[in-house]
């Protein structure tokens, strides 16, 4: 008798427990992971059988490349090159590829992106907590050592001239996101969204096949400007509001510097969002086009293509390229005007 009761109890328990599960057959299991790396908070969500293992590997990979590319870690390859007194050092294949990409983008953007700006950025205190306005003399002095064309990269041999410093800050996160994406794809993850401190990379679509919905932050205020619906794309935004300081006189200085002046880029843009296949390209261009301003950014887009962009000007205008015009919807109550540009 007791035995049958036991069986009955187990059966009922099973029925009860399975009864309150959500529709799980159609929804693949989600795996989530987060970590602090590259001076930012990263979150990953992936769907698929092998998703958890894939995310773990991606996280490890990001920590590996951070250790190679950190500008402050004395063990990193970049640090060694920067403090070699102008000697040639050999770097890993991955680091060589990243530097090669950064130098190529510097050239293509005519120096609007310059990976040797670091000493100037440090003088402004953006790399530390003691932000300050450097003197004109100090900036002039430092700018003499800002010139990407003097960095020598031959194969895996890197030479950073004495007094100069390389910094991968404007491309490293985008590149790391690409590496993470590669790992997810190798593990047959067909649906994932990763955020490297606001650098978004979408693998595939949502598990139900619809586009991912990405909020585009409103510059200088809380909340979002609107929503961008995308699949299989990277979305990277740069804006002065992300890191800035205000002096006692009420002047505001932000972290995106114009390499030609050594001062915060004041090109009339509040924010630049780049949408493309590769995180590295989006990362590099979001900074470079912010420095260029709307007019030069439009020219660059027409000449080079291969990406979409959303520019927010200080005239409260949103300039958006035709490829994503239909994918962007402005939030209710926003007063910005939208201008769509065609190639």
């Amino acid at each position: 008798m007791r035995f049958t009761k036991c069986i009955l109890a187990v059966l009922m328990l099973t029925a009860t427990v399975t009864g309150c599960g959500r529709q799980s057959e159609n929804q693949p299991m989600a795996a989530e992971r987060s970590l602090f790396a590259m001076n930012t908070y990263m979150t990953f969500t992936a769907y698929g059988e092998d998703a958890a293992a894939a995310l773990e590997k991606a996280a490890v990979r990001i920590q590996e490349v951070e250790a190679l590319w950190s500008v402050t870690d004395e063990e990193s390859e970049i640090y060694r090159a920067n403090h070699s007194g102008g000697q040639t050092v050999s770097v890993s294949d991955e680091t060589a590829k990243l530097i090669s990409f950064a130098l190529e983008m510097a050239q293509k953007t005519d120096g609007a992106l310059d990976p040797t700006i670091y000493p100037v950025l440090a003088a402004w205190g953006f790399t530390t907590d003691s932000k300050q306005v450097p003197s004109d003399e100090q900036l002039d002095e430092l700018l003499r050592n800002v010139d990407y064309s003097r960095i020598l990269l031959e194969g895996e041999s890197l030479t950073v001239p004495e007094g100069m410093e390389l910094d991968m800050g404007a491309v490293g996160k985008g590149y790391a996101a690409d590496l993470a994406t590669e790992i997810l794809l190798e593990h047959n993850v067909s649906s994932a969204i990763i955020s490297l401190g606001g650098n978004i990379q979408a693998v595939g679509s949502r598990p139900d096949g619809s586009d991912w919905r990405i909020g585009i932050r409103a510059p200088w205020e809380d909340g979002n400007l609107g929503v961008l619906e995308i699949s299989d794309a990277a979305v990277v935004t740069s804006g002065g509001y992300e890191n800035y300081f205000e002096t006692q006189d009420g002047d505001i200085y932000w972290h995106i510097l114009d390499p030609s002046t050594g001062r915060p880029a004041d090109s009339g843009l509040q924010a630049v969002t780049i949408i493309g296949k590769e995180g590295r390209l989006c990362d590099a261009l979001s900074t470079a086009l912010f420095v260029m301003g709307a007019e030069r950014a439009e020219e660059y887009w027409r000449e080079n293509g291969g990406f979409d962009m959303l520019l927010v000007t200080y005239q409260n205008e949103i300039i958006i390229t035709e490829g994503i015009a239909d994918s962007f919807s402005l939030n209710d109550g926003r007063t910005e005007t939208i201008r769509v540009i065609a190639a």
């Binding site: 969500t45 606001g198 979408a202 991912w212 919905r213 990405i214 909020g215 979002n224 992300e242 969002t273």
Partner: peptide, 8 residues
């Protein structure tokens, strides 16, 4: 309607 991520 929920957002999957936020850029910026």
């Amino acid at each position: 309607d929920a957002l999957d991520a936020a850029a910026g």
